[in-house]
């Protein structure tokens, strides 16, 4: 028993090291000059620390605009995906017979590579003034398409775990159908909402294909990072990557308590 636990801890450490190694490398490159990044054999510990990569970003890629666009589009995408998926998931949760066709429909949207869809979408968006939209509204629509299946599947499972008796009890207590949903069901699926929110945020946050093809002069962070890396600035690219980690960590930290709150315990027995 004790031995098994030690083995488990050891395994955990190995996994953590493998997971954290790229992260360490990103941070090291972000805070050291480029010549150290290109050095061979590679050095694992930074020799000379600098904030130069971060300072150069504003003039090189107009960081503030890119950051703003990425955050704005991701938050809008979370809101729209959850708002659209929630009613659908509520209906679907009560109809297990629809699971197969709905699952199939959700997977179909993922069958087409987004890089292929982005081109006709861009052509369409030109007419709707959504192409290269200054507020990224075209990108938001595209990301919502990506976000809905994730949100739908997570919310449907969450809604299904709410015991039917709770909703029946609320009905007997005099709540309307909408009132029951708002006062009973919704508070009980908070963990699922949080999980769906985190996932959809991350889907939009590091989406690349649409971001590359639907925005031209006003780009979100992933294509900007790509340009810096492609044109030989690993330090600045790593600096963007480091910056991209921050909001992702923030949203996980904000929503994580909701994820853990076993709200359903205590209804029965």
């Amino acid at each position: 028993m004790k031995r098994g636990k030690m083995l488990l801890v050891a395994l955990g450490v190995v996994v953590a090291v493998i997971d954290l190694l790229p992260l360490a490398l990103i941070l090291k490159q972000a805070f050291t000059p480029d010549k150290e990044s290109f050095a061979w054999p590679p050095t694992w510990l930074p020799h000379q620390l600098t904030a130069e990569n971060f300072r150069g970003l504003q003039s090189a890629i107009r960081l503030d605009q890119g950051l703003w666009l990425s955050v704005f589009v991701a938050l809008l995408t979370v809101a729209s995906s959850l708002a659209l998926a929630l009613p659908a998931a509520w209906v679907a949760a009560q109809r297990p017979r629809l699971d197969r066709p709905l699952d199939a429909a959700m997977i179909v949207t993922r069958l087409f590579p987004s890089i292929a869809l982005a081109v006709p979408l861009a052509a369409l968006f030109v007419h709707l003034r959504l192409y290269n939209n200054p507020a990224g509204l075209g990108l938001w629509l595209a990301h919502t398409l990506l976000g809905i299946p994730f949100a739908f599947l997570i919310l449907r499972n969450g809604l299904r775990s709410v015991p039917l008796e709770l909703e029946e009890a609320a009905r007997l207590d005099g709540a309307s159908a909408l009132g029951t949903f708002w006062r009973i069901t919704l508070p009980l699926v908070r963990p699922s909402l949080a999980a769906a929110g985190i996932l959809v945020f991350l889907v939009s946050w590091d989406e690349f294909a649409y971001a590359l093809l639907l925005q031209v002069t006003n780009r979100s962070l992933p294509p900007l990072l790509y340009y810096l890396a492609a044109f030989g600035y690993p330090g600045m690219a790593s600096a963007v990557a480091a910056i991209m980690l921050v909001p992702a960590l923030c949203i996980i930290l904000v929503l994580e308590p909701a994820l853990r709150s076993g709200v359903l315990s205590g209804s029965g027995r």
């Binding site: 029946e168 009890a169 009905r171 007997l172 709200v263 359903l264 205590g266 209804s267 029965g268 027995r269």
Partner: peptide
């Protein structure tokens, strides 16, 4: 809710 009937469910169905 207009029946003036109240029910206690087998597993209580308390709002957690």
């Amino acid at each position: 809710h207009e029946r003036n009937v109240a029910m206690v469910f087998q597993n209580y169905a308390l709002y957690p």
